[in-house]
Design a protein around this nucleic acid. Structure first.
Lengths: 183, 183
DNA sequence: CTGCCCATGTAAATGGTTACATGATTGA
DNA sequence: TCAATCATGTAACCATTTACATGGGCAG
């Protein structure tokens, strides 16, 4: 599971509550790993049992009490070991490709609609990746080295989405040519 | 769930057993959707209860009895409707990017090893995509239109993996330049 | 005689999503 | 007064993976 290690990664910066961590996921990690608050609270409890984090309950008068988690030495070791691990390529689960495999059942305009809509969504996503919000994230980097690494994660998204966009634009064009050839 | 619909897609070609379907997944669909036999058998049972498929038990003397599934008219309708559905972009779960987010904790050579190993795996995968095995699949296409669609699914994989490979090669180069700059 | 192919399944664990639930504070 | 933010959680469900299980036929 990577969720555990991603949480350790954040906690290695500074102590956080589950609520803080959820927000960190939704901002800096949203594009390549997501998690619901349910999942985060559950995992933090597990990690506490495993001794990877310490828990401190902070009473508050104006808000509900909060539980602040701090990484332990054991947690740091687990994080370091995990960071070095060489994983296989991530499994792909690409619904559109499954649809295309069987799309011979559809009408021409339905196929084009499927492709065009996907293209629109890719363009929207690319706008997000190029937005100020996205690039603002690595202003908090503590060194050029860290900034470089964070930049890599963004660039990966841009590279793959641009490749898919080229693919889909070519696909639409080729499909239209095929239509003309065989009316 | 796409598994159900992928199964319907295959059954729309001809009747198959769960075992056949597992093999079809492992060959023609392996690159963009995977399924274990456990999952397939369970889902076929559900689909049977829902009336999407008919089941015929074929007794065999030399092998265990088998259950041959045939798509029903209701199943065909469900498949057709699903094929037209416009999905959001698939969620990304990219462990390497999570690792890179926290990789500032690693030594230079460990970061390079992480990137280089991922690059090797991308190259291996691209070899598979360009292999005869992969292209042999769409010899069974029944029309140029179908062949075109199947070709699209392969090209998507090639385009995205090539983009990632370019990204990682650039990343390694840039990282080495950064090292020289700050020793 | 070993191991793979055929053909099916159950059980358990892990991961992830959705819905339900509480309750105070703050800003529009 | 309405919605959002802070802060936590449970329960139920769905999806996926891994391990365990059976048992005959066939080829090296």
């Amino acid at each position: 599971m990577s969720l555990k290690h991603a949480l350790l990664g954040f906690l290695n910066f500074s102590p956080f509550t589950g609520y803080d961590l959820k927000k960190l996921f939704d901002t800096s990690m949203q594009y390549f790993w997501s998690a619901t608050h349910t999942q985060i609270y559950r995992t933090l409890n597990q990690m506490h049992e495993e001794g990877l984090v310490r828990r401190e309950i902070v009473e508050q008068t104006d808000h509900p009490d909060k539980k602040v988690y701090t990484i332990t030495e054991e947690g740091e070791q687990v994080l370091r070991d995990w960071l070095k691990h060489h994983y296989d390529l991530p499994p792909i689960r690409h619904r559109l490709l499954v649809q295309l495999s069987f799309a011979n059942l559809l009408e021409d305009d339905e196929i084009i609609a499927l492709l065009a809509d996907y293209g629109d969504k890719l363009r929207e996503r690319l706008v997000q990746y190029h937005s100020d919000e996205a690039t603002a994230l690595y202003e908090r980097a503590r060194s050029e080295r860290e900034r470089f690494l964070w930049d890599l994660t963004l660039k990966n998204g841009i590279a793959t989405y641009e490749a898919e966009l080229n693919w889909i634009e070519q696909a639409i064009e080729d499909f239209k040519n095929l239509q003309e050839k065989e009316p």
